[in-house]
Design a protein around this nucleic acid. Structure first.
Lengths: 395, 395
DNA sequence: CCTAATTACGTCGAAAATGACATAATGATC
DNA sequence: GATCATTATGTCATTTTCGACGTAATTAGG
């Protein structure tokens, strides 16, 4: 049984043991050579070589054909054997629970979203997820034994020890220990992180921040949130509010925000702002994705709305630029599907308000702005990624 | 010769080798036990034990008497032998070069500040520092051979490779490679980091952030700057602007700032703001330290000015709270000598504008605000600290 | 004064990771 | 088509690091 071996390999060891590092490197990128892994992980080539040999012997890693860009012996590309196992990513949202199944090469095998009544309990969530997993594995004729772990993307901040720190979206969950709450029901290794951090993880492992270990993610949905990734790890913060870019106060006398403050960034660049403005203009309500679509098709009114949102977001990010100054900003969420319609004004607004201007530094030292790769299921994917990366492994 | 051994130990090895980790742990805190070092560094007790034995044999480490708080065998306190060597910290400021000499136990042995004409060149700086070092070592009868390295605190951002990234305070320095520029003249290992990051390092190693590896430092001087420390390392940023909290734009229609933007935080909580307001009020200019002194003595007008500055700073920090959410804020610089007069309004303003309110979380999860320990020479001390910690070792 | 509990320390064999060396596979050049 | 330069890979002795065990030094409590 391949899976059990992989499981043992992943979870039986120290968190930062070389084997885990190698598996992590493999799970991140698609096809990597021995030397690349060595460079990425900082391990010696010989160590990686030995480990890879073991993994190949256990059939957890397969070789793929190599391509040769330059001179020198062509590298052998390795990747995790997709048949080595599957993992589940579950999103616990306010009124929806979504479950995806992916193989270890992060191909999404199945996807299921279920509405749930608000303010559901952890017990209820465990039941729903269990049911979904059972159903999906049955439907797709997957062996339950191939499931190596379940990752949760939670709409609440999580402490590194796996406890819910605060709970506005999921009332009553504060203090819940994820492992305690879910492991008994699901009988598999459990991992969890906040929804935003999962999204960031997905972009980092397989998306727009691939191979980049320092960046800031900004998600422009109804809520505006995000994540700050430093050295490959998303910050959590003392109170779990790291990455809450949507609630930077940019005008202390501005309108009231749902969080209780005034003039939060969210009010100026969230999907709510865009649809409210559009509704005022049209005289009727209109879904955000339609606004985006029609803006892309060329309707100038909607374009302007997106530009306004981009302008505000750029101003907010300029503050991030002054404090953290990441080399990469990833803009995600519904509004990001507008692409350059949003990004162009965002960039120029950033430049206008930022401390370091484009001319002050080399091109390479000026931050890059890019839309996310997974605008829809980033959090679920990231949750599945947790299982492979198990950086947020619950003790 | 003890020094050469220490030097070899510090610089002859990999940056993260256990020996270096142990020396680092020792150089940080005053007196530490074997087990404490093991816990702090993550190394096995046995490893630490062996290394310490070596170091003691070489006389680089001395034992101090132990205290026994609880039950159990009392720990043996170790510290670096102050006679094992000295190091120099040099501040390269706009119009001043300051040099301090410290032993490896971070006692300041000598201190010398020299005015220099503005826009001085690296060559000039090297000459001045060399002269100062020679003088100080002669005056205090220190052996030149005991000098194990020179750290620079520079008024400009430095890339991790030791190059000056931008240069507003030190025009013409952009691209300067510190090691190349100073090692030939000074003939000692050279280390360098930005002024703010050095200040943060000093607070982290021996000051208000002792033992804390995640915090944000805010310096309220004429300029308002700071540092963001994550996992024991001060962020640099893509363009070297990480930590520039003074240039967060809090009012896009506010007054013009020296940086070319409008409404930067610095304009509302810097020493410049306070003294300008005081001058308007008094009808004559008055030095900032006098304002602080008289506020402490009870003059309500000056108290109000400091409270206003604190209020603005708190608002700025609330943004940091939303993005990074560090467990500790350290307020430093001239204004910080006002203590609670500044901190109290700062705290309440932070609370007012912050996303997570005090009641939302346990006491332990709410950030702490504290004044810095070294308000005057933090940057020089930190520069000397670089030598011991050599985290910013130039390749 | 004696015992139990607790914490700290150091030694030693076992395990892990590395660095050096030898080998392999390709493109470029003559 | 032979040689060189370049890069990738695997093996193995050496070095480094760890975990387990036994010992030491103290406090609390009877």
């Amino acid at each position: 049984m391949i899976t059990s071996e992989l499981e043992g390999l992943l979870y039986g060891r120290e968190l930062d043991s070389p084997v885990v590092k190698v598996v992590r490197a493999l799970s991140g990128h698609g096809a990597v050579s021995t030397s690349q892994i060595a460079r990425n992980t900082g391990l010696a080539r010989s160590t990686v070589s030995t480990i890879l040999a073991d993994l190949k012997r256990s059939n957890l890693v397969v070789e793929m054909e190599a391509r040769n860009p330059g001179p020198g012996r062509p590298a052998i590309a390795h990747s995790l054997n997709p048949e080595a196992g599957t993992c589940v990513g579950a999103l616990l949202d306010v009124d929806e629970i979504r479950v995806i199944v992916a193989d270890v090469a992060h191909n999404v095998v199945a996807d299921l979203a279920m509405p749930v009544e608000r303010e559901y309990s952890p017990t209820k969530a465990a039941r729903v997820v269990k049911h979904a997993v059972d159903t999906l594995y049955k439907e797709h004729s997957l062996a339950h034994t191939s499931l190596i772990g379940i990752g949760f993307a939670v709409s609440a901040p999580l402490a590194p020890d796996g406890r819910v720190m605060r709970s506005s979206a999921l009332p009553g969950w504060q203090g819940t220990d994820f492992r305690e709450a879910f492991e008994p029901a699901l009988q598999k290794p459990i991992f969890a992180d906040s929804e935003s951090n999962c999204a960031a993880l997905a972009e980092m492992m397989w998306g727009a921040a691939s191979g980049c270990s320092d960046f800031v993610l900004l998600k422009l949905n109804q809520a505006v949130s995000g994540a700050v990734v430093v050295d490959g790890r998303a910050l959590v913060g003392a109170s779990g509010s790291a990455g809450e870019m949507g609630h930077i106060v940019i005008d202390p006398h501005g309108p009231l925000c749902r969080c209780g403050n005034r003039g939060c960034l969210e009010l100026y660049c969230g999907a709510g702002f865009v649809s409210k403005m559009a509704a005022d203009w049209l005289g009727r309500s209109i879904p955000v994705d339609e606004i985006v679509t029609r803006a892309v098709q060329g309707e100038t009114g909607f374009r302007r709305l997106l530009a306004d949102a981009g302008e505000a977001a750029g101003r907010g990010l300029s503050m991030v630029g002054a404090m953290i100054n990441p080399p990469l900003f990833i803009i995600s969420g519904v509004l990001a599907s507008a692409g350059e319609l949003l990004l162009a004004p965002l960039r120029s607004s950033y430049e206008k308000h930022s401390f370091v201007k484009r001319d002050d530094v080399d091109e390479a030292h000026y931050p890059v702005f890019r839309t996310g790769k997974f605008l829809d299921n980033d959090n679920c994917l990231g949750a599945a990624g947790l299982v492979l990366r198990h950086s947020s492994r619950l003790k």
